[in-house]
Structure formats: C-alpha cells, structure tokens
Amino acid sequence: MKITQKDVEHVALLSRLKLSEEDKDKYTQSLNAILEYMEILNRVDTSSIEPTAHVLPLKNVFREDEAGETLEKELVLANAPDRENGCFRVPRII
C-alpha cells in the first residue's frame, strides 16, 4: 500500500474536500492502484536530468504600465452567490 486511509484524509483536508467513510475507502483503493502504476517511473535514472515545467522558452512578459479596459463591477458581481455593498459576502470568519 502506497497510501493509507489516514493519508487520504489528510489530502482531502488539504484539498478542502469532505469525504464520506465510503468515499475514503474508494479513494484509498483507486489512488493506491494509480500510485503503484507510477512506480515504473523509478526504473528511469533521472539524477542528471533537468526538469521541464514548461515547453516554451518563455521569458517574463512585460507591457507598458497603462490602465486598460476592466470588467464592469456589476457584471463581475452578477455571478456571486451572495453579495453586499459591492462586495462578495461569505459566512462569518471570526
């Protein structure tokens, strides 16, 4: 076993997902099967290989610091599940 149910609970916490007991069991099994399959990567010696995060040789992209068009506030807030005084409203935090 690569990961235990406890690991799955920890990863779910980090991912902000709430899992039922049945889910935990199911994900422990399927994630183990996937992670075991990934073991084949260890057959490859990568000690002298540079990682590739991105295929394009991109540099920082700069532009003039000038205000362009922005979205209308009303349009942006239109999708909000809850709002108040031009802000997104969430449950009490403190």
Partner: peptide, 24 residues
C-alpha cells in the same frame, strides 16, 4: 472553486465548512 465569487455555494455556518461542502 470555493463558492465565493461564482458557481455553486452550499451554505454552512463558517467559511471553511462552506468551502468543504461546496467543493464536495
């Protein structure tokens, strides 16, 4: 996708629970 700015929100008593319920 946290239920704050767009899409589904499942209401809960506090913000973290709201995130968890919404995403689940």
């Amino acid at each position: 996708y946290d239920g704050v700015r767009y899409g589904l929100r499942v209401e809960a008593d506090d913000t973290i629970s709201m995130f968890n319920e919404t995403r689940s």
